[in-house]
Protein backbone atom coordinates (compact mmCIF):
# COMPACT_ATOMS: atom_id res chain seq x y z
CA UNK A 1 0.00 0.00 0.00
CA UNK A 2 2.82 2.33 0.85
CA UNK A 3 4.11 2.44 -2.72
CA UNK A 4 0.78 2.42 -4.45
CA UNK A 5 0.64 6.08 -5.55
CA UNK A 6 4.20 5.91 -6.85
CA UNK A 7 3.30 2.88 -8.93
CA UNK A 8 0.39 4.74 -10.51
CA UNK A 9 2.60 7.71 -11.19
CA UNK A 10 5.20 5.50 -12.85
CA UNK A 11 2.50 3.86 -14.99
CA UNK A 12 1.21 7.21 -16.07
CA UNK A 13 4.68 8.48 -16.88
CA UNK A 14 5.52 5.37 -18.90
CA UNK A 15 2.36 5.76 -20.90
CA UNK A 16 2.95 9.47 -21.38
CA UNK A 17 6.43 8.89 -22.79
CA UNK A 18 5.31 6.18 -25.19
CA UNK A 19 2.27 8.18 -26.23
CA UNK A 20 4.25 11.31 -27.01
CA UNK A 21 6.58 9.28 -29.19
CA UNK A 22 3.68 7.73 -31.05
CA UNK A 23 1.76 10.74 -32.33
CA UNK A 24 2.11 14.51 -32.43
CA UNK A 25 -0.32 16.45 -30.31
CA UNK A 26 -3.52 17.75 -31.84
CA UNK A 27 -4.89 21.07 -30.76
CA UNK A 28 -8.30 20.82 -29.20
CA UNK A 29 -10.35 22.77 -26.70
CA UNK A 30 -9.06 22.72 -23.14
CA UNK A 31 -10.38 19.95 -20.96
CA UNK A 32 -13.10 20.90 -18.50
CA UNK A 33 -13.79 17.84 -16.38
CA UNK A 34 -17.02 17.75 -14.37
CA UNK A 35 -15.08 17.60 -11.13
CA UNK A 36 -13.64 21.04 -11.84
CA UNK A 37 -17.12 22.39 -12.56
CA UNK A 38 -18.45 21.01 -9.28
CA UNK A 39 -15.50 22.44 -7.35
CA UNK A 40 -16.00 25.81 -9.04
CA UNK A 41 -19.68 25.70 -8.05
CA UNK A 42 -18.75 25.00 -4.43
CA UNK A 43 -16.20 27.82 -4.45
CA UNK A 44 -18.91 30.07 -5.85
CA UNK A 45 -21.20 29.16 -2.95
CA UNK A 46 -18.44 29.90 -0.44
CA UNK A 47 -17.61 33.24 -2.09
CA UNK A 48 -21.28 34.29 -2.12
CA UNK A 49 -21.59 33.30 1.53
CA UNK A 50 -18.49 35.29 2.48
CA UNK A 51 -19.87 38.33 0.62
CA UNK A 52 -23.23 38.08 2.37
CA UNK A 53 -25.21 36.93 -0.67
CA UNK A 54 -27.25 34.47 1.39
CA UNK A 55 -30.23 34.51 -0.99
CA UNK A 56 -27.92 33.47 -3.81
CA UNK A 57 -26.50 30.67 -1.64
CA UNK A 58 -30.02 29.38 -0.99
CA UNK A 59 -30.61 28.99 -4.72
CA UNK A 60 -27.53 26.74 -4.90
CA UNK A 61 -28.73 24.26 -2.28
CA UNK A 62 -30.87 21.30 -3.31
CA UNK A 63 -34.35 21.87 -1.75
CA UNK A 64 -34.80 18.14 -1.11
CA UNK A 65 -31.62 18.02 1.00
CA UNK A 66 -32.30 16.30 4.31
CA UNK A 67 -32.09 18.97 6.99
CA UNK A 68 -32.42 21.81 4.46
CA UNK A 69 -34.09 24.31 6.79
CA UNK A 70 -31.67 23.62 9.64
CA UNK A 71 -28.76 24.24 7.27
CA UNK A 72 -30.30 27.43 5.87
CA UNK A 73 -31.09 28.84 9.32
CA UNK A 74 -27.55 28.15 10.54
CA UNK A 75 -26.14 29.87 7.46
CA UNK A 76 -28.35 32.96 7.90
CA UNK A 77 -27.66 33.18 11.63
CA UNK A 78 -23.90 32.84 11.17
CA UNK A 79 -23.92 35.70 8.73
CA UNK A 80 -25.77 37.92 11.18
CA UNK A 81 -23.07 37.29 13.79
CA UNK A 82 -19.88 37.26 11.71
CA UNK A 83 -18.19 40.02 9.69
CA UNK A 84 -15.30 39.96 7.23
CA UNK A 85 -15.83 36.24 6.64
CA UNK A 86 -12.89 34.68 4.85
CA UNK A 87 -12.80 30.98 3.92
CA UNK A 88 -9.76 29.11 2.61
CA UNK A 89 -9.94 25.53 1.39
CA UNK A 90 -6.83 23.39 1.49
CA UNK A 91 -5.91 19.72 1.07
CA UNK A 92 -8.88 19.47 -1.32
CA UNK A 93 -9.74 16.23 -3.07
CA UNK A 94 -12.46 15.79 -5.67
CA UNK A 95 -13.95 12.46 -6.76
CA UNK A 96 -16.39 11.85 -9.61
CA UNK A 97 -19.33 9.61 -8.78
CA UNK A 98 -22.12 8.22 -10.89
CA UNK A 99 -24.26 11.35 -10.72
CA UNK A 100 -22.50 13.32 -8.02
CA UNK A 101 -19.11 14.77 -7.20
CA UNK A 102 -17.72 14.28 -3.71
CA UNK A 103 -15.41 17.04 -2.46
CA UNK A 104 -13.43 16.45 0.72
CA UNK A 105 -11.54 19.45 1.99
CA UNK A 106 -10.01 20.94 5.07
CA UNK A 107 -10.88 24.59 5.62
CA UNK A 108 -9.99 27.65 7.65
CA UNK A 109 -12.66 30.19 8.41
CA UNK A 110 -11.63 33.63 9.64
CA UNK A 111 -14.11 36.24 10.75
CA UNK A 112 -14.78 39.04 13.21
CA UNK A 113 -17.36 38.02 15.79
CA UNK A 114 -20.05 40.45 16.87
CA UNK A 115 -20.54 42.40 19.03
CA UNK A 116 -16.85 43.17 19.79
CA UNK A 117 -15.65 42.26 16.29
CA UNK A 118 -13.06 40.01 17.86
CA UNK A 119 -11.02 37.83 15.47
CA UNK A 120 -11.86 34.13 15.26
CA UNK A 121 -10.10 31.32 13.40
CA UNK A 122 -12.02 28.06 13.01
CA UNK A 123 -10.65 24.97 11.34
CA UNK A 124 -12.47 21.91 10.15
CA UNK A 125 -12.91 19.18 7.60
CA UNK A 126 -16.00 18.69 5.52
CA UNK A 127 -17.33 16.46 2.80
CA UNK A 128 -19.52 18.23 0.23
CA UNK A 129 -21.75 16.28 -2.10
CA UNK A 130 -22.40 18.26 -5.28
CA UNK A 131 -25.19 17.14 -7.60
CA UNK A 132 -25.76 18.10 -11.22
CA UNK A 133 -29.36 19.27 -11.65
CA UNK A 134 -31.34 21.00 -14.38
CA UNK A 135 -30.28 24.28 -12.78
CA UNK A 136 -26.57 23.43 -12.65
CA UNK A 137 -24.45 22.11 -9.83
CA UNK A 138 -26.06 22.26 -6.39
CA UNK A 139 -25.02 21.34 -2.89
CA UNK A 140 -26.91 18.13 -2.11
CA UNK A 141 -25.36 17.30 1.25
CA UNK A 142 -22.64 18.25 3.66
CA UNK A 143 -21.12 16.18 6.44
CA UNK A 144 -18.32 16.65 8.91
CA UNK A 145 -17.71 20.09 10.38
CA UNK A 146 -20.16 22.78 9.29
CA UNK A 147 -18.32 25.89 8.18
CA UNK A 148 -21.66 27.68 7.75
CA UNK A 149 -22.53 27.29 11.44
CA UNK A 150 -22.72 30.33 13.74
Amino acid sequence: MHRLPNIFAAMLMAFALSACAAQPAQQQAAIIPPAADALAALEGILAAYAEGQTLHVETKVEPAMIGYQQWIDAMRLSHAQQKQIRIALHDTQVVNGSDTVTIRSAWDKRYLSLPELSPVLRKGQSVFLMQLTQDGWKLAAQSGDNLFAP
Binding site: P5, F8, A9, A35, H90, D91, V94, N96, A106
Partner: peptide, 23 residues
Protein backbone atom coordinates in the same frame (compact mmCIF):
# COMPACT_ATOMS: atom_id res chain seq x y z
CA UNK B 1 -8.04 9.38 -14.45
CA UNK B 2 -5.34 10.87 -12.30
CA UNK B 3 -4.67 14.18 -10.63
CA UNK B 4 -1.93 15.33 -8.29
CA UNK B 5 -0.60 18.49 -6.69
CA UNK B 6 2.94 19.25 -5.55
CA UNK B 7 3.77 22.41 -3.62
CA UNK B 8 5.87 23.83 -0.84
CA UNK B 9 3.08 26.21 0.20
CA UNK B 10 1.41 24.99 3.40
CA UNK B 11 -1.58 27.21 2.66
CA UNK B 12 -2.36 24.86 -0.23
CA UNK B 13 -1.32 21.50 1.18
CA UNK B 14 -1.01 21.79 4.94
CA UNK B 15 0.42 18.37 5.77
CA UNK B 16 2.72 17.16 3.00
CA UNK B 17 4.29 18.60 -0.18
CA UNK B 18 2.32 16.38 -2.51
CA UNK B 19 -1.21 15.11 -2.70
CA UNK B 20 -2.91 12.69 -5.00
CA UNK B 21 -6.12 14.46 -5.81
CA UNK B 22 -7.73 11.51 -7.51
CA UNK B 23 -7.00 8.14 -9.06
Amino acid sequence: QFGATHTNDRAVLSLYPRQINNI
